[in-house]
Every structure is written in C-alpha cells, then in structure tokens.
Design a binder for these strands. Structure first.
Length: 275
DNA sequence: CCACGCTCCTGCGCGC
DNA sequence: TGCGCGCAGGAGCGTG
C-alpha cells in the first residue's frame, strides 16, 4: 500500500537503473486500473534517462539513441511495487509486467496483487492524471496560508480535504489520520473553520510525518529483504491509525473509529475536539 | 460547480 | 481445521 514515502523510496531505488537499456518487456496481465498499452514493447532499445515523481505517480523518462524520448507513468495503486529481482529467482504470482535490461542480472518486476495501479504512456495520460493535482506537500507551495485559503471555500470534512489530491497530493488515509491527531484536529471539522494557526500546525505535521516516513523508507531500502511490499510506514509506530478501542497515548481515552467519505478514520475524542 | 458513493481487485482476518 | 464473508484502500468517474 504505497503512500508517497513508498513511492519516493521506489523512485530512488530505480536510479540504479539509469543508463541501462531495455532489452525485453513481458506483460502477463495487462488489466490494471487502465490497460497496459499493447505497444509497451516500444521501450525495447530505450535507455532509462531519468526518474521523477509527481504525487504518487512515478515518471520514467527513456530515450532512444539520445533522440526520441518516451515517458512512462507508473502508479503503484494500493498493493503495487516495483521490485528488482535476480534473473535466477522465480517470478512471483502477480508479477504483471517484467522489464529486462541489457548487461544486467536484474529484472524489474511490476508486482500488484490488487491491480489498482497503472503503467501508461505519459503523452496519453498526463493531462488526465496530472493536470488537476495540487502542490507537493514537501514543497514551498504547501503553506499554511495556501491551505487555509483552500479550506475556506468548502464545508467538507477537513480529513476529506487534505486527502483530496487537488488540495495537496500524497496524503493518503494513514498520513491524514496521523496528521490530524498530532494537530489536535477533529477529522470531521468543517474545513472552512480552520484558522491560520491550525493550518500552520497541520502543514507542519503533514510535512514532518511524511519526511520522517521517507527517511524510514530509505533505511528499509538499504537492507532490502522485503518481498511483500510491507515496508515503510508499517515499520513506524502509528499513533492512532488502526488503534480504535485502544488507549490514546496522550490521555488514555479509547481511540474511536468513524467513516469519512467511506474511509476508516481513527481519532481521539478527547485530544481532537476542534469540531 | 460541488459533494458523495461507486468501482476496480485480491488478501487477510474474523466468526462460526 | 476450514470455509465464506466483509472489509480495506487510491483515485477517477458517474450521479444527484
């Protein structure tokens, strides 16, 4: 279940393949969120030039003889991962696409049991998928002033708003839940009631939690022994997410669980009283 | 325009 | 022990 830190960690891991040339692409299951393009084998002969990330989308730039560039969008969905595995190891179930590189012992496997992810040509999908996105949470554009102004125009629950990719990208259910807890904000609080100081607190916590998770993701990468994708935030202690019924670490009040726009939302009724 | 609920899919955990 | 059910989740998209 990759959130932004996992995607960023994946992007970093792919940098070791920069300069390598694709020798073969095998697709065993094209049915992802959208179908894998049937001309994906046009990557053969192309060299990986650059890895980038926008929100939870990986953007991989390839070039052929330094001329035509082909860009790929990869989204890991909920259960996806890009794993570099030795040629001698047996492919796993749910390895839907495998990319081989010249003069390496490595195959790059797109592994995604739930198939919520996507592998797409950038040129065909960038407009649809990337145009409406809000600022990166760790960028200078995500400020308290911005967040408060964005929130001022809606009565939606604050949790729904910070999970909305048009407001800010990369804040999934887990990080939204944790950030609101540390900010002492009730997840159902109408967004337009958010004060500037509260917005500042929220921005600060979103940023520190994400930055810390990226740091942890990097550390799990170095002793890369996981094959199930359960790295990253599963390693860090979560203060409220998934802890409903258990005592709040700050006040011992039992953590409650509600649904907000269909998502489980754990919070402390004592510490998060901004409603 | 806005807000919500549906949808895709599989693995897991729980209850019996 | 085994079976079956319900839930989880990112995010585009349809609907009211």
């Amino acid at each position: 279940m990759p959130e932004l830190p996992e995607v960023e960690t994946t992007r970093l891991s792919l940098e070791s393949l920069i300069g390598k040339t694709v020798s073969q692409v095998d697709v065993s299951q094209p049915k992802l969120r959208w179908p894998i393009p049937d001309d994906i084998d046009r990557l053969v002969g192309c060299r990986l030039e650059k890895t980038a990330r926008r929100a939870k989308y990986l953007i991989l730039t390839f070039s052929q003889s330094g001329a035509v560039s082909r860009k790929l969008i990869v989204h890991l969905g909920m259960s996806g991962s890009l794993q570099q595995r030795d040629l001698h190891t047996t492919p796993l179930k749910h390895d839907h696409a495998v990319v081989y590189f010249d003069a390496t012992n490595i195959r790059l496997c797109y592994h995604d049991p739930r198939r919520f992810g996507a592998i797409l040509w950038y040129d065909e999908y960038a407009d649809k998928l990337l145009n409406h996105l809000g600022p990166e949470p760790l960028s200078e554009h995500f400020t308290a002033e911005y967040l408060q102004q964005y929130c001022a125009k809606t009565t939606r629950a604050i949790k729904a708003v910070i999970m909305d990719q048009a407001c800010v990208v990369g804040v999934g259910n887990i990080y939204a839940t944790e950030s609101l807890y540390f900010s002492n904000l009730h997840p159902l609080m109408p967004a337009n009631q958010l004060t500037l100081p509260q917005a500042q607190t929220l921005v600060t916590h979103i940023q520190s939690i994400l930055a810390n998770a990226i740091r942890l993701g990097g550390s799990t990468l170095r002793d890369y022994t996981h094959s199930d994708g359960k790295t990253g935030y599963f390693q860090q202690t979560l203060a409220v997410y998934g802890r409903h019924g258990q005592p709040c670490h700050q006040c011992n009040t039992p953590i409650e669980n509600i649904k907000i726009t269909g998502r489980a939302s754990a919070y402390c009724p004592q510490c998060q009283k901004s409603l």
